[in-house]
Design a protein around this nucleic acid. Structure first.
Length: 524
RNA sequence: GGGUGAUUGGCCUAGCUCGGUUAUGGCAGCGGACUUUUAAUCCGCUGGUCGGGGGUUCGAAUCCCUCAUCACCCGCCA
C-alpha cells in the first residue's frame, strides 16, 4: 500500500493533499485513453453560434441536444455555490465546462470539485450550452480525472522566473495557448519551407552530424571522441560540404533541415545548436537562389500572416515581403555611411568634394586605400583576427555602417572574395564573389553563393584559410581534402543557399530572442 | 574573460541600510459560505528558520568570509 510519505520521498515537491486524492482513487487514478473533440476552439465557436446566452442543450426541445466529450488541462476552477465553472484548456484554446449540483447530484458534484485542481488533466462529457453571461460551455454530465498534477500550477504572470521559463520549458508552455503558439507557428514555417523546396524538386537527404573534418562556415566546432575509431570527431558547423558531395554524385537538387553546432557564446541571437536549412541546385547560380529565397520567405510569411506579405512588427513597422531590395555590398556601405563623421573626415582629407556641414557622400571603398579602411575600422574598435586583408576590411565596414540599418528584406550582393573560400569569383570583377546575404530587421537571414566547383581554386582557397588559422583566426576552417577530391570528379555548376531557421522564425513572429523560438534553449 | 546585483514556504514578495521577543502580505492548497463565473468573491486554517558552509556577537534573514546557482551589463561570436 503506497503512502503519502512514499510518494514524498521521491517527489519532495508533491503536495500531500493532492497525493492523498490520487492514492484514494487507487487503480482509477491514471486512466489510459479518452476520446475527445480535437479542436476546442472550433467547438467553442460552434456552440456560440448554436445557442443563445442562458440556453442549454439538455432542455426539452432544445435546438441541439448533441453530446460532446472534451479534454484538456484544468486552467481554472471557480465555484459559486451549487454551480462551478471549469476552464478546460486544449493546445490552442480553452472551453468552459459547467457543473450543476441540481443536475449532477450533491455527491458527484462535491466529489468532482474536491478531486480537481488547476493543473490537472480532465475529461468532460456533457451537452452544449451557453452560460447566462454568454460563455459557450459544456454542461457536464460526467467528469473524469485523466491525470493529476501533484504540484501547484505555476503562474508565470506573477512568477517571471527565467530558470522556470527556460530551464523547464513545460512550465512556460503550460501558461496558455499563446505560450504554445510560437512553437505551433514555428512548425508551420518549417513545414512551408520544406513543402516549397519539395515542390521545386529538392530532395531531402540525410547527412552526418559527426564529421572527421568540419567546414562550410567560420566557427569553432564542438569536439567529441569516437571509441570505435579512436579519433577526435566534430559536430558539423554547417551542411555545406556534405550536400555538395551529393551534387558530385549526381543528385541535382538536395536539401537538409537540421541542427548545426557552433561552440561559441550564447546571446539573444546565438544558440550553440541551431536549425539550419541548406539547399543546393545544379545548374543554378546565385541569381536563381535569390528568386528561391524570395519564394521561401513569401510562402512562410503568407502562411502565418493570413496570406498577406505585409508583416506588421510589434513596434508597428511593416516589413514588406512583396518587394525585396537588392544592393551591392559596396553601395550599401556608401549609402549608409553618408553623413557619418567617418565619411566627412575621409572626404575632407581627400578633398574630394566641397563640404557643407552634414553633406558628405558615403564612403566609396573603391577610392579608399587600405590605410583609410584600417583607420576607420580602428576608430570603431574593429579587430580582424588573422590579420588585415582588404576584402575582410570592406566586409567589416559593411557591418559597421550598414548591417543594422537594413530593415526591409534586402539582398546584399557581391562580397569581397576574401570573405568566403567556397564561392565562385564574380564573373565581372575578380576581386568579388557571387554571393548574397539576405538582411531583414538588421539581421542576416540567408547566405548564398554561386558555388565554387573548380577543385584547384578550392584547394588554393583552403590553403589561404589555413594561413589565417596559423595567423590566429581560430574560426577559419581547416582544409577538407576529401572535399577537394570530390570536386576533382566534377561538380556541376550550382547555386547554394543557407537559412537560419531560428532567426527566420524570430523575425517572422516579431520576437527578439532566439530563446523564445526554441523549446529548449541553452542558458549561459 | 571582466563587472554589477540577486538567492526568504510550490510560486511571487516585505523585512536586510543603523543586528534584538513566536519572519510580512498575496497566489496556490485545505475547510466553510454563495446556482452563472471568466486571474470570481467573502470568512477561517495549514505550510517557511530566511541558497550551502564558516565566522563575529549575549543575540543574525539582517554584519564579515567562502562556495554554489541565477540574472543583468561589457567583451567575444563576419
Amino acid at each position: 500500500m503506497t503512502t503519502v510519505d512514499d510518494v514524498r520521498a521521491v517527489i519532495p515537491n508533491a503536495d500531500p493533499e493532492q497525493v492523498k486524492k490520487v492514492l484514494a482513487l487507487k487503480k482509477k487514478a491514471w486512466p489510459y485513453t479518452f476520446r475527445a473533440e480535437r479542436d476546442l476552439v472550433a467547438l467553442r465557436a460552434k456552440l456560440e453560434a448554436t445557442f443563445q446566452p442562458g440556453e442549454k442543450g439538455n432542455a426539452p426541445g432544445s435546438k441541439s441536444t448533441k453530446r460532446y466529450k472534451i479534454a484538456g488541462r484544468l486552467a481554472s476552477k471557480r465555484g459559486s455555490g451549487g454551480i462551478a465553472f471549469l476552464d478546460v484548456e486544449g493546445q490552442d484554446g480553452k472551453l468552459q465546462a459547467i457543473l450543476d449540483k441540481f443536475e449532477m447530484g450533491d455527491a458527484a458534484f462535491d466529489a468532482a470539485l474536491h478531486l480537481l485542481n488547476a493543473g490537472d488533466w480532465v475529461g468532460i462529457a456533457g451537452y452544449g450550452m451557453r452560460s447566462k453571461r454568454g460563455e459557450p460551455s459544456i454542461g457536464a454530465e460526467k467528469v473524469t480525472l485523466l491525470a493529476k498534477s501533484l504540484v501547484p500550477l505555476i503562474d508565470l504572470r506573477t512568477a517571471d522566473n527565467p530558470e522556470l521559463r527556460y530551464g523547464k520549458p513545460y512550465i512556460g508552455l503550460m501558461q496558455g495557448p499563446d505560450a504554445r503558439r510560437v512553437l505551433v507557428q514555428r512548425a508551420r514555417i518549417t513545414q512551408v519551407v520544406r513543402q516549397t523546396l519539395e515542390k521545386d524538386g529538392f530532395l531531402d537527404v540525410a547527412i552526418p552530424v559527426l564529421e572527421k573534418v568540419y567546414g562550410g562556415a567560420n566557427a569553432k566546432p564542438f569536439t567529441t571522441k569516437s571509441n570505435a575509431k579512436d579519433m577526435t570527431m566534430y559536430l558539423r558547423i554547417s551542411h555545406e560540404l556534405a550536400l555538395k558531395k551529393l551534387l558530385v554524385g549526381g543528385l541535382e537538387r538536395v536539401y537538409h533541415v537540421g541542427p548545426a553546432f557552433r561552440n561559441e557564446d550564447i546571446d539573444t541571437t546565438h544558440n550553440p545548436e541551431f536549425t539550419l536549412m541548406e539547399c543546393y541546385a545544379a545548374y543554378w547560380d546565385y541569381n536563381n537562389m535569390m528568386r528561391l529565397t524570395e519564394k521561401l520567405f513569401q510562402k512562410a510569411v503568407a502562411a502565418i500572416n493570413g496570406g498577406s506579405l505585409q508583416l506588421k512588427r510589434p513596434d508597428g513597422t511593416i516589413l514588406d515581403f512583396a518587394n525585396f531590395q537588392t544592393i551591392t555590398m559596396k553601395d550599401a556601405i556608401k549609402s549608409h555611411s553618408a553623413d557619418t563623421p567617418d565619411a566627412v573626415t575621409w572626404w575632407t582629407e581627400h578633398n574630394k568634394a566641397p563640404m557643407g556641414a552634414g553633406m558628405a557622400p558615403g564612403l566609396d571603398v573603391d577610392e579608399m586605400t587600405d590605410g583609410d579602411i584600417q583607420r576607420i575600422l580602428a576608430r570603431h574598435d574593429v579587430v580582424i583576427r588573422g590579420g588585415y586583408a582588404r576584402g575582410l576590411g570592406i566586409a567589416k565596414l559593411f557591418e559597421v555602417f550598414a548591417e543594422a540599418k537594413l530593415m526591409q528584406p534586402t539582398f546584399v550582393i557581391d562580397h569581397p572574395k576574401e570573405t568566403t573560400p567556397l564561392c565562385k569569383a564574380h564573373r565581372k570583377d575578380p576581386s568579388l564573389v557571387e554571393r548574397f546575404e539576405l538582411f531583414i530587421a538588421g539581421r542576416e537571414h540567408a547566405n548564398s553563393y554561386s558555388e565554387l566547383n573548380d577543385p584547384y581554386a578550392q584547394a588554393k582557397a583552403f590553403s589561404e584559410q589555413e594561413a589565417r588559422r596559423f595567423a590566429g583566426d581560430d574560426e577559419a576552417p581547416p582544409t577538407d581534402q576529401d572535399f577537394v577530391d570530390a570536386l576533382s570528379h566534377g561538380m556541376p555548376p550550382a547555386g547554394g543557399l543557407g537559412i537560419g531557421i531560428d532567426r527566420m522564425v524570430m523575425t517572422l513572429l516579431g520576437l527578439d530572442s532566439i530563446k523564445q523560438v526554441l523549446p529548449f534553449p541553452q542558458m549561459k
